[in-house]
Amino acid sequence: MKQFKGRPVVAGTCTAEALVSHGGFNTLASFQNALQFGDKTAKCGDQNNADLYGKPMVNTALCLPQTIGSTTGGMVLYCANVMKRNPTCMLFSEHIDSLAAAGAVLAAVWADEPMVTIDCLGQEFLDYVKDGMKITVSEDGTVTVE
């Protein structure tokens, strides 16, 4: 077990299994099929992301450095959130990027159930965490990996 201290962008508590992207997470490419064609498990559709391609993202603790790609990104995350096709939480090793922050904040202000979002967890977090590990997030941004 190991703990990492991050910064809550959207604070909250949750527990979920880790799903890890070591490269940038392309939000539009990852979610577009899931949102359009009724895939309730939200399998990642980003062909350039060897870590995640084809893996379900719903109810996971999505661990990533940052998001990349189209500026629809925040809106796509917001839609995924309202449609219940979002990860339980998003855990960023680096400082959150502008698109992911938009998605997290939009969900926090305009949706019923905000998505817990923690950033600045550090590269060591991303090196340590592996798919399937149990993740517990505390209100203060502490992430426990076991």
Binding site: T71, L99, L106
Partner: peptide, 22 residues
Amino acid sequence: SSAVVYANSVLGARCNRNSGIL
């Protein structure tokens, strides 16, 4: 994204990579 990077780089305007809706 393509318009923002063009406006910033080629035109010298100032814009973050804002998301849709924002």
